[in-house]
Amino acid sequence: MTDFINVMLYAMFVENLALVFLLGMCTYLAVSKRVETAIGLGVAVIAVQTLTVPLNNLIYQWVLAPGALSWAGLAAYDLSFLKLVVFIGVIAASVQILEVLMDRFSPVLHQTLGIYLPLLTVNCAILGGSLFMVQRDYDLIDSVAYGLGSGLGWAMAIVLFAAIRERLRYSNVPAGLEGLGLAFIVTGLLAFAFTGLTGLAVS
């Protein structure tokens, strides 16, 4: 259990995908003008990340990894080079299925989150999560923790940033810096605050 929490906290704070690895920045900057939309996108990221990282982990362990096909008597094959195209396919499919299911069973949720879901196919934080999972040899349990933690971390980062940005609208900024330029500098400061969390762990 401590392991689970540690992997999760690590993914959420120490190696925050948005602020430490700088992933998913396009969406991060484009959809952070209002806190409500940021929360919507954040929840969508948590859902998709918690779903796709373990799913990709299963596919990698049983089909793609070197020697993974030994259960089918094909131990000599190494399909790991296919991981990029398979992962992006799994992500696109999960996003689509999630959208259909939401529409069917919870139209209200679909109305609030539905518009953000397709954006996530091209969000590097989602694909990045799956690739880091492979790079670090996470098992299934770890990858659930990692998916959940990194999703929560990304959501937290974008909500924090949107809240700051709402306040910034009333501030007096030099011409040319307002908008995008200032957004970058604020994200940089936010990212600096996160470097202070290095080494965080539960024992």
């Binding site: 690895f21 040319g176 200032l182 500098i185 990212a191």
Partner: peptide, 14 residues
């Protein structure tokens, strides 16, 4: 550190 890239691009845009 990673955050410095944000500052540089921020100033570049400015």
């Amino acid at each position: 550190y990673a955050p410095s890239a944000f500052f540089i691009i921020g100033f570049l845009i400015w």
